[in-house]
Design a protein around this nucleic acid. Structure first.
Lengths: 66, 66
DNA sequence: TCTCAATGTCAAATATAATTTGCATTTTGC
DNA sequence: GCAAAATGCAAATTATATTTGACATTGAGA
C-alpha cells in the first residue's frame, strides 16, 4: 500500500482519474500503484512525481538502512 | 546518458556484469540504462540504488523546476 | 602482438507492465 | 433513499521491459 502516493494525490484534491489524465495513464494503473500491487516503470513514476510536485524519493523510496 | 548511475557504479569498482549479478538483471539491461536508452521498472531502480548505496533521487531524478 | 576482460550492439523470444472494457462496490451530496 | 462520482476488481489484449545468445570493439596487461 503506497500511502505516500495516495496522500500526495489527496492533498492536491485530485481523483485517481484526474491524476491518471495528468500523467497520461489509466485510472486502473494509478489505483494499482496506490495499492502497492504494482511495479510501474521509471518514466511513469517521474510523471506522477512531477504532477504532484514531489520527487521520486518522496513517493517511491523506502529507507531500509540495514 | 545516465552519468550518475555510471559514476556510482564505477566508484564502487563494479563492472556492468557484477552490478547486474547483484540486482539479478542482465549486463545488457544495465548497459542500456546507463546509456539512457531505457525505461526500467521501479523495482529494478530500487535494487540498483540499494546495491550502490544510493537513493532513487541520487540516480534517477532530474530537477526540472519550471 | 596476443589474450582477456569489459563494453557496445543487434535480433529474436519471453515476461510482464499498461491499457481497455465492463461491472460491482463504496462514498458523497441532494 | 436516490443519483452520481469515485474506487475496486478481473479478464483479454497491447505495449514494452527484460532476457538470451551471439558477435564486434575497445583498452589494459603480459
Amino acid at each position: 500500500m503506497n500511502m505516500k502516493l495516495k496522500l500526495a494525490r489527496v492533498e492536491k484534491n485530485l481523483s485517481q482519474q484526474e491524476l491518471a489524465d495528468c500523467v497520461e495513464a489509466t485510472r486502473q494503473t494509478i489505483g494499482l500503484i496506490e495499492k502497492g500491487k504494482y511495479n510501474p516503470t521509471l518514466n511513469l513514476c517521474v510523471r506522477i512525481a512531477n504532477a504532484l510536485d514531489k520527487t521520486l524519493n518522496d513517493l517511491f523510496w523506502e529507507d531500509h538502512n540495514d
